[in-house]
Design a protein around this nucleic acid. Sequence first.
DNA 1: TACAGATCATATGTCTTTCAGATTATCTAT
DNA 2: ATAGATAATCTGAAAGACATATGATCTGTA
Lengths: 167, 167
Amino acid sequence: MTSDVTAPAPTPAVPGDLGWNLAMVLRGYQRLQEDAVDGLPGGVRCYHVLSTVIHHELPSQQAIGAHLAIDRTVLTYLLDTMVTAALVERVPDPADRRARKIVATAEGVAVLARYEERVAAVETTILGGLEGVDAARLGSLLGRLAGSVHRADPAASPCEAVESLDR
Amino acid sequence: MTSDVTAPAPTPAVPGDLGWNLAMVLRGYQRLQEDAVDGLPGGVRCYHVLSTVIHHELPSQQAIGAHLAIDRTVLTYLLDTMVTAALVERVPDPADRRARKIVATAEGVAVLARYEERVAAVETTILGGLEGVDAARLGSLLGRLAGSVHRADPAASPCEAVESLDR
DNA sequence: TACAGATCATATGTCTTTCAGATTATCTAT
DNA sequence: ATAGATAATCTGAAAGACATATGATCTGTA
């Protein structure tokens, strides 16, 4: 099997394989991630939210939910557990008192840093199925594709909020 | 600390981005696919099952369920709807009368052929965010990675059954 | 100012989906 | 022939997602 891919198989052999491959990889990734975030209240989603809060400073819960495709009603009680765990705080936005900005506590920042190492290890493990250069290539391609998908569907993520960090 | 491997950005900037990218692409894919399989009883999963039945001739429901990560109890009534729709039949395996081999009817084959065009179009659309060569490369890399993930976790898919087609 | 409509977070109830356990029939091995 | 394991099915309980309704607030308009 050579890896020159130009001519022979531009599309996977069977329609649907792309989805199967994506799902397979994502499933393996999530399984490892579940172990990696053990101890975090709220599980994987807590990690996602915490990471989002710290790395993209989104202005409202709604923006976070849209970014992660988490329903607002679900996000409410997910944040409850995170506030209880003292990872984040709900700060009323002075500019818009309906909205609450979610900010990480000092402990939240520390906790995220600790778990990011483990998640990074998970990614390394998953990508370990490919050689270094290919892994990097896949990451890059996937990132570009995700960006295009994200752009193609503004409904999934309100770009206003993300835009500032999107490039 | 140690994640600087070879190139400037082999790993996404933030741990978790890989998962976010995967989820984003998969979500976009599935959304399009849901429209594409409109009219198929049982939705996307029906397509998956039908495709699996026809392309990989697995010996039992259990093998199908493992391959697609569908719970056996769920598969039972999913197959019910497909049998009702005359897409597949449950054929008692003469070699093992506990097991039922799921075979597609002539109509099932025809229906799948029809929908495969639409799903292929979906994949083309999704991959349209990349240029041709890159799309092919991504497909190839993803396939290899999925294979490695699949092999790393024998629990998710009983390899006996799939092995013959897994090349 | 006053009002209407829209928006953010939350609370509540419904509804689908998932999952564990028990059941029946069958296979395998001793 | 008997015991234990396995394939499919059935049942009920638990979890999760989703739509809807509510209270507070913002925006625009007259």
